[in-house]
């Protein structure tokens, strides 16, 4: 099969995503600048100033911030500055954390991946395994029960399961560390290093990984099942059976290839949104990722960090979706480049 680079499609997709990014930046400017200034009649500089900073009075700070960040400029100058800063990742300095914002975000971002990516992979494994299990047994009792549990997972509040698990197995039975700080120090209180550090990290993250995977496999399982059922009824399967190919080989060699495509595609989309949904698990298990950063900023009304973290999350989603646009046709050649 000859593979030609579909330039038109690529350019179209890239332009679409860039428009989306610009719309998001405008949207953020609207809610962070326009609404406070014109609707609530507030100076946005108020958001950036901690209650006290190096002993300065609040009005001095606000004035200084006004000058430093150009918040006393006309709104269109501010707008151009804002768009420029967002596109070049110049997020400025957080007086509340006393650190550059980009450093705070860069510290939080990788923490998510320790738990969220393994759980995503694990849930895809569950989804494909259980989906094929159901597809092969379509219409039987075991299929109904399996499907029912998959539907159930759509509606189980994740935070509820996490707190129950944490309270029973973490606090009551003491089977695993209840927060990341506890996991990364030795019983004597010294911080762990090397392999012990990694072992502590694994011991800590194994429970949230499994719980998150169990709570997230439902949609992909249903996809695998329905496509699996469809494939099982298609004429090529009838032909393979007629040819005398063993059932096991029909399922695992031929049906599976077709049935897992939607689940894999869906995994990609879930990967794009995985950080966005991490607020609960990070809050309950107390590790400092993007979700927790966003949540803490919301609780402490730290609008500066909130806006930037939200921007980074959206950017992440857009980039992942764009990458997926390019990968899908490789996974499933039936996807047409429009």
């Amino acid at each position: 099969m000859r593979f030609s680079v579909p330039w038109r499609y690529l350019v179209k997709r890239i332009i679409e995503r860039i428009i989306l990014l610009i719309v998001i930046i405008n949207f953020l400017f609207l809610i962070i600048y326009i609404i406070p200034i014109y609707v609530a009649h507030l100076n946005p500089a108020e958001f950036y100033v901690p209650l006290s900073y190096k002993g300065l009075s609040r009005s001095t700070e606000v004035e200084a911030i006004d000058r430093e960040f150009g918040l006393n400029q006309p709104i269109f100058v501010q707008y151009i500055d804002y768009v420029k800063n967002m596109l070049t990742f110049h997020f400025g300095y957080s007086l509340i954390y006393d650190e550059p914002v980009s450093k705070i975000i860069l510290q939080a971002l990788p923490v998510d991946l320790i738990i969220l990516v393994p759980s995503l992979i694990l849930s895809t494994v569950f989804a494909i395994g259980l989906g094929l299990f159901s597809a092969v047994r379509f219409g039987r009792l075991s299929d109904s029960i399996n499907t029912f549990f998959a539907i159930l997972t759509y509606f189980i509040p994740g935070f509820w399961v996490l707190i129950i698990f944490l309270q029973i197995f973490g606090f009551q039975l003491g089977l695993f560390p209840t927060n990341i700080a506890q996991a990364l120090i030795s019983p004597s209180g010294a911080p762990l290093h090397g392999w012990a550090y990694i072992a502590g990290l694994i011991k800590f993250s194994i429970a949230p990984i499994i719980i998150l995977a169990l709570l997230a496999y439902g949609v992909r399982m249903a996809l695998t099942r329905s496509y699996g059922v469809e494939s099982m009824g298609s004429s090529y399967v009838t032909y393979l059976r007629a040819k005398g190919i063993p059932e096991r080989s029909v399922v695992y060699k031929h049906v599976m290839r077709n049935a897992i495509i939607p689940a894999i595609t869906r995994t990609g989309i879930d990967f794009a949104f995985v950080i966005a949904g991490s607020v609960f698990v990070e809050d309950i298990f107390g590790f400092y990722g993007m979700g927790e950063l966003l949540y803490r900023s919301a609780l402490t009304f730290n609008v500066q960090i909130l806006g930037d973290a939200f921007y980074i999350l959206s950017l992440y989603v857009i980039v992942v979706l764009l990458v997926l646009d390019f990968i899908y046709p490789l996974i499933d050649p039936r996807v047409k480049y429009e």
Partner: peptide
């Protein structure tokens, strides 16, 4: 619709609500 589908939902919810709270609206 695609635009709203692409924005991460829960973070947007949290951000919007915080803006409404801090701005006194």
């Amino acid at each position: 619709t695609d635009f709203f589908l692409t924005i991460p939902g829960l973070p947007l919810l949290i951000t919007l609500e915080t803006i409404f709270v801090v701005s006194g609206l």
